[in-house]
C-alpha cells in the first residue's frame, strides 16, 4: 500500500515536472523576450564581421563578405587591447576592495545593534544614489591632488563609492539568513572571530559572496563617466577608447562594432562561471 502510494506520488511529481517543461505559452513568452534581447546584439555581431563598404552599402542580414579584419585591428594594436586590460585590472581591484571592507561591515549590520546603525545604513545607501555626474569633477580634483590621477587604483577607489554600499546591502541580506546559533556555537567551541569568519561563516554565505562579486564586477565594468574622467592615457578603459573610432574620415563602424562585441565577452564569461551561484543566490530570495 505504502509502496503504491510513493509510486503514485512520484508519477505526480514527474507529471508536474513535465508540465513545467512543455508549457507552450510560457516558452513562447520567454522565446519572444530572449529574441528581443538578442536582436540588437546579433546586429552588432553581424556588423563586426562585415567590411565598412558592406555596412554602409546594402543592408544584409548575414555578412556577405565575411571578414575578421575588424577584430585583428583591435587585437594587434596595443592602444586598443590595453583598454581591455586596464578595465579588467581596475574592475578586479575594485571587486577585491569592495568585498574586503563590505564583509565585516555587513556582518556587523546583520548581527548587532549599535548606536546609529540604521542611520549609518541609510547613509551608506545614499552613496549608491549619488549621481556620478555630481562626483566627476570633485573626484578629478581629489585624485589629481593625491597623485592618483590616471592610475587603476583611482578608478577602483572611485567605483567603491557605489559598489561598497551595494555590497554591504546584498551581503547583509544573505547573512541575515544564517541562524545566529551557528555563531554562538562556534564561539563556544573556542573559535576566534577571525577564524570563525573565514572558516565557517564565509563558506556558508559563499553564494552571497558570489552574487556580490558579480554585482561589483557588473557595475564597475559598465561605468564610463567616472572611469573616463579619472584616466588620461595609461589607465584608459576600453569604453573610453571606443569613442575615438569617429575620426575625420567618418565613423569606422566595423571596428566600433567589433570593439563593442569584445566588451561583451568578459561579462558573458563571468556570467557563465557564476551562473550556478547566481541561481542559488537568487533562490535565497535576496538580490
Amino acid at each position: 500500500m505504502t509502496v503504491a502510494g510513493t509510486n503514485n506520488a512520484s508519477t505526480v511529481v514527474r507529471r508536474r515536472r513535465r508540465a513545467v517543461v512543455i508549457d507552450k505559452k510560457k516558452a513562447l513568452v520567454m522565446g519572444l523576450y530572449l529574441i528581443f534581447l538578442m536582436l540588437p546584439i546579433y546586429w552588432l555581431l553581424n556588423m563586426s564581421l562585415k567590411s565598412n563598404a558592406e555596412i554602409v552599402g546594402d543592408l544584409t542580414l548575414l555578412p556577405q563578405d565575411f571578414t575578421l579584419e575588424n577584430y585583428t585591428t583591435i587585437l594587434t594594436d596595443p592602444s586598443w587591447y590595453m583598454g581591455y586590460v586596464n578595465s579588467i585590472i581596475y574592475v578586479t581591484i575594485n571587486m577585491m576592495i569592495s568585498l574586503a571592507v563590505a564583509l565585516p561591515a555587513a556582518y556587523a549590520f546583520s548581527r548587532y545593534n549599535f548606536m546609529g546603525d540604521k542611520h549609518l545604513f541609510f547613509w551608506l545607501l545614499t552613496n549608491r544614489m549619488a549621481p556620478p555626474a555630481v562626483f566627476a569633477l570633485p573626484f578629478f580634483q581629489l585624485y589629481s591632488s593625491v597623485g592618483l590621477f590616471d592610475t587603476h587604483l583611482a578608478v577602483a577607489l572611485a567605483h567603491t563609492l557605489f559598489n561598497v554600499p551595494l555590497a554591504v546591502w546584498i551581503l547583509e541580506g544573505f547573512m541575515r539568513g544564517v541562524p545566529k546559533e551557528i555563531d554562538e556555537t562556534a564561539y563556544l567551541d573556542g573559535y576566534s572571530f577571525s577564524r570563525f569568519f573565514t572558516r565557517i561563516f564565509m563558506p556558508l554565505i559563499a553564494p552571497g559572496i558570489g552574487v556580490t562579486a558579480f554585482f561589483c564586477f557588473m557595475f564597475s565594468w559598465v561605468e564610463l563617466l567616472l572611469s573616463r574622467t579619472l584616466t588620461g592615457s595609461d589607465a584608459r578603459p576600453i569604453a573610453a577608447i571606443m569613442t575615438r573610432t569617429s575620426g575625420a574620415a567618418g565613423v569606422d563602424w566595423g571596428v566600433l562594432a567589433a570593439a563593442g562585441m569584445l566588451t561583451i565577452v568578459p561579462g558573458a564569461l563571468v556570467i557563465y562561471f557564476v551562473r550556478n551561484y547566481i541561481a542559488k543566490g537568487f533562490a535565497l530570495g535576496r538580490v
Binding site: 530572449l34 534581447l37 564586477f217 565594468w221 564610463l224 569604453a239 571606443m242 569613442t243 561583451i264 563571468v270
Partner: peptide, 11 residues
C-alpha cells in the same frame, strides 16, 4: 537575460 546587464553603458 543577464547579458544586457553586463554590457558597458556606452556600448
Amino acid at each position: 537575460m543577464s547579458l544586457p546587464l553586463l554590457i558597458p553603458w556606452n556600448v
